[in-house]
Computed example of a mutant assay.
Amino acid sequence: MRRMAKDRTILILGCLAAVLLLATGGLWLSRGEADAFAPCRKGLEAGGLDGLGSPFTLTDQNGARVTDRQVLAGPALLYFGYTYCPDVCPMDSARNAEAVAILDQRGMRLTPVFITVDPKRDTPEVLRDFTGAMHERMIGLTGSPAEIDAVAKAWRNYYRLNDQEDPENYLVDHMTNSYLVMPGAGTVGVFDRELSAPELAERAACFIDAASIAGI
């Protein structure tokens, strides 16, 4: 009888250990699935980018009203700037366009998106000239000041118009991050302007590959 009780205790303990092992493994797997992009993230990205972005409706470079579902239907690289910017915005946009071209050669499609922070001057026509000079697939977006303010805040992208003294010829202070947005996953990467086009392409490729592997 004592031996049977001992065997039963061993059996129960073994079952409990198996359940604990399965639960721990399931938790580990769920974390792995939730963080499919972990190998691609660096710096602040490692802490996650939850909360960046929101639905929007803006006007594209052709004058059409478009939504985030249309613009961000595939992997996209968002940049906030303005076409009257004397140096930084053209350089950053050209870098982004070059990175997209590099990925095109690798069979990876990434759409560059330019969202103006200067809607008063950046009309659809002005945006069309700017984006057309950068990349054939680049999308330019503008809107009312309230719409631009809302979308910039959604991506925590600060900007400030310095038009108090001269309402026609002025500069705009703004952040220069580029945001990688993946359908079904939201904003997964934030890249600063110090990255070269090949480096940016390599970083973006990691995220695109990870999304494909995870079925996102």
Rank of each mutant, 00 (worst) to 15 (best):
L77K: 04
H135V: 09
E165W: 09
I12N: 05
I208L: 15
A17I: 11
M138S: 12
D173T: 06
R156S: 10
F80N: 02
Q70Y: 01
I115N: 06
T57P: 08
D7I: 04
Y84S: 08
A201S: 10
R8P: 00
P198H: 06
D192P: 09
K120A: 14
V188M: 07
T111P: 00
D68I: 09
E125F: 05
A17V: 12
F130W: 11
E98G: 01
T123F: 11
N169H: 15
P39S: 06
C206L: 08
V181S: 07
D118R: 01
R31I: 07
T116D: 13
P112N: 11
F207L: 09
A214D: 10
Q70R: 11
Q61M: 10
Y158F: 13
R3F: 09
A154H: 08
A36L: 12
V151K: 01
E33C: 02
R160T: 02
P39Q: 09
F130G: 00
D50F: 10
T24G: 07
A185R: 14
V188H: 03
H135W: 11
M4Y: 11
K153Q: 12
F114P: 01
L13A: 11
P86F: 06
A73E: 12
M134S: 13
F191P: 02
T111R: 15
G215H: 02
T57N: 10
A94R: 14
F207R: 11
K120F: 06
D163Y: 02
E165I: 04
T123H: 10
L110I: 15
P75M: 14
Q61F: 14
C85R: 06
L200F: 05
A146S: 13
A23N: 03
V66H: 04
A99G: 01
I216Q: 10
A99C: 05
L27S: 06
N162C: 00
N162E: 10
L200C: 05
L27C: 05
I213W: 02
P167E: 05
